[in-house]
Design a protein around this nucleic acid. Structure first.
Lengths: 215, 215
DNA sequence: GCATTACGCTACGACCTGTAGCGAAACGCT
DNA sequence: AGCGTTTCGCTACAGGTCGTAGCGTAATGC
């Protein structure tokens, strides 16, 4: 956005000189990207087809986004970062469950699930891409989450030495892998189950006296 | 392999009639696939380039594998399924840690990490592909893991009502997401950290008392 | 008016795709 | 020996995408 430009290069005027870009083209291209992403998937998503549907020519797209990955990222943003944020409610268990459910909602969105593996590929291909996308994709959500954990520790609701990033990955990664391997089924149950698992751990209650649960 | 053929279609003789395939071509193609996958990544991996490097023509490849996804799967198998299996040692905590470390080792392999997002994309694209790949990629490892959990519950080491699939996803998905977002750094620490998290949960200890244990 | 940039549009060479077809080779079967 | 079948090396095809270059024209700031 123009805000970014101003921040990154304050010396340059807001209007860069020359004919300004037509914002309607941006919107048309992003919309076409989203719809085509759902219809044909990331692999068969071609700049050519996007341009056709948007009623634009390819050079207009290349002028705005360097690669398909950056275009797709722009098209599905801000789905990623925002929905993974959780306000501190003062009840850590509740916040964790809310985070898990947000993750379920996020990764249940077909266009998100269609985009993420593609972005993973292209990020692996071009390390610079990670630096460009990561801040908006997840880095800021991570920072928020770390605060959440820190406060829960301060309140005595969570053990110290919990690594927020590990917990973050455990929540998001679990939901992601489940949807990839099993599809979008029984996700409410997964969110509750995962929350309970992360809160209590796998261990049996300290008194195994009544241990014969099953068998 | 020929064993599969015999199992899947016992009526068909082991030798299907006609000129037999040259196994050396299989090997050359798979080897070329692995090396090219590392060099150019899944996206830019073309059947054409694989054929060139393997000293083979494209039709010979298409005769063996229907799609790039199936070829890549064949090329990195059996990395996936085997290394995620853990024998029951009688100590659940130990087995979980071992599983986490195995996941780290598996997803640290560059060719595995280069292949997986690509397979995710193509699986999403062609649902039949999932049915063909999943059994070897992870379904059997899941079944093994479920047994491990069941026994731990029977021994009183784990709570009943733990969902093995959730725990499986929590282990594998966490490691996967971490490596995708942060790269292959500090993974030993992650494995230990994740294991502790899943065993004990996030909650502060009620009475730390004589516990404390390691670290 | 001048410089600059975006736009519509066309075009280019390069590459990959999936399939078809040719003659020859390698097997099982009769 | 002959037949049917399948693979192999090889060539070729039509179709698509890629990323860029270039044209004339439009829209802005100076």
């Amino acid at each position: 956005m123009h805000v970014d430009t101003a921040i990154l290069a304050p010396a340059i005027p807001a209007r860069p000189a020359g004919r300004p870009r037509d914002r309607r083209l941006d919107a048309a291209v992003l919309k076409a990207t989203r719809s085509l992403l759902l219809e044909v998937g990331y692999r068969d998503l071609s700049i050519e087809a996007i341009a056709r549907r948007a009623g634009v020519h390819r050079p207009a797209i290349y002028r705005r986004w360097r690669t398909k990955a950056e275009l797709v990222h722009a098209a599905i943003y801000p789905a990623g970062d925002l929905t993974l944020r959780v306000r501190d409610s003062g009840d850590f268990a509740r916040d964790l469950r809310r985070f898990a459910r947000n993750a379920v909602r996020l990764f249940s969105r077909p266009e998100v699930m269609a985009a993420i593996p593609g972005l993973m590929i292209d990020i692996r291909h071009d390390p610079g891409l990670r630096d460009r996308l990561s801040p908006r994709l997840e880095a800021s959500a991570r920072a928020d989450f770390a605060q959440l954990v820190e406060r829960a520790v301060a309140r005595g609701e969570a053990r110290p030495h919990i690594h927020p990033d590990t917990l973050f990955d455990a929540l998001a990664g679990t939901v992601f892998l489940r949807i990839v391997t099993a599809g979008a089924v029984a996700l409410d149950a997964l969110a509750d189950d995962l929350t309970a698992l992360l809160l209590r751990g796998t261990r049996a209650a300290r008194r195994p006296g009544t241990k014969g649960g099953r068998r």
